[in-house]
């Protein structure tokens, strides 16, 4: 390694480490703050005394959640949504990406389909036409609105397609000679060879479905059908969009909330993301880099 032992260089190292440590801590702070709030005693939490560490120790909030049917109901809806949404879109995306990865000679309609797919990625009808369409399918208030209405994540289809395209062609040719049909080639050869990109796409889709709150809000008419993020949104961050709101009312609203209980709910909602985070971390760099593939 290059030698750098001058005084300036050392000062730089120290300052650099301090800056990076502060940045790093600032990214851990959301988790730590929420956790601290959730285990603090209620009076301290609500008075806004919790800043960098818990004040007192109380599991009352978590105990309260245990008997909160609404919370668990929303949690369960989110689980269903993630499983169905990720599963179905994964199958559709893989099946779609494979023919698109073929050349025009191998799949004649490839370019037409590709242009349709790209157009769907770059253009949309806007919120209102989309909402009225979903409504006209009678999907409102069903889990299928949450699973399907967000649409097919086209960008992920392109990630998969680019990956499939760069697989060595001779594996497939060998399989064709052995008499394997396109379905067996896709699920027996292409998919097993593409596990990193499939993992990336699965995680992205799963996190999207877990984190998405807005479709839950507008496609579900009553709170008992909200997914977890929408439930939390309504409880914790939503402010009446009443234009007569005054600063004093705003103050009172923020003093009313049960901070420690809310924080416990938020913390539980973060946990699944933290559990898959090591995997996310492992794969998402690949995912982003694939998005920037150069040919």
């Amino acid at each position: 390694m290059v030698q750098n032992k001058t005084l300036g260089s050392r000062i730089f190292d120290i300052v650099n480490t301090i800056i990076l440590t502060i940045l790093t801590l600032s990214c851990l702070y959301p988790l730590w703050y929420t956790f601290s709030l959730s285990i603090s005693v209620k009076s301290a939490a609500n008075a806004g005394l919790v800043t960098f560490y818990p004040i007192g120790f109380s599991l009352a909030s978590y105990r309260e959640i245990m008997s909160d049917i609404k919370f668990f109901n929303s949690f369960w809806i989110s689980i269903q949504r993630v499983v169905l949404g990720t599963g179905l879109s994964l199958i559709a995306m893989i099946m779609m990406a494979y023919p698109l990865s073929k050349s025009k000679q191998e799949f004649k309609a490839r370019d037409i389909f590709m242009w349709i797919v790209i157009f769907c990625m770059l253009f949309n009808g806007g919120l209102i036409p989309w909402y009225l369409t979903v409504k006209s399918y009678h999907l409102l208030d069903t889990i299928w609105a949450l699973v399907l209405a967000g649409g097919l994540p086209v960008f992920n289809v392109i990630l998969l397609m680019n990956f499939f395209r760069n697989l060595p062609a001779d594996i497939e040719e060998a399989a064709v000679i052995d008499g394997a049909g396109p379905w067996r080639i896709l699920f027996g050869i292409v998919v097993p060879c593409s596990l990193p990109v499939i993992a990336t796409v699965t995680l992205f889709t799963g996190v999207y479905h877990w984190n998405e709150f807005f479709n839950g809000l507008i496609l579900m008419s009553d709170a008992s059908k909200y997914p977890l993020q929408t439930y939390i949104q309504q409880l914790v961050v939503s402010i009446p969009s009443d234009t007569t709101l005054t600063p004093d009312q705003y103050k009172r609203l923020s003093e009313l909330s049960n901070k420690s209980l809310n924080a416990a709910k938020v913390f539980i909602a973060i946990t699944p993301v933290l559990i898959v985070y090591p995997f996310l971390q492992k794969y998402f760099v690949t995912g982003i880099m694939l998005g920037a593939v150069k040919e």
Binding site: S89, I91, A92, M93, M95, M96, Y98, P99, L100, K102, F107, A109, F113, I116, V117, C120, F123, N124, G125, G126, I128, P129, W130, L132, T133, V134, Y137, L148, A149, G150, G151, L152, V154, V157, G181, P182, W183, L186
Partner: peptide
């Protein structure tokens, strides 16, 4: 077979991306 593979995804796009465009 390739068309068949395209079907679910295209249907999904049709129902939730393309139909709304007509709105």
């Amino acid at each position: 077979h390739y068309y068949l593979m395209m079907l679910p995804g295209m249907l999904w796009l049709l129902l939730f991306s393309i139909v709304p465009m007509f709105g």
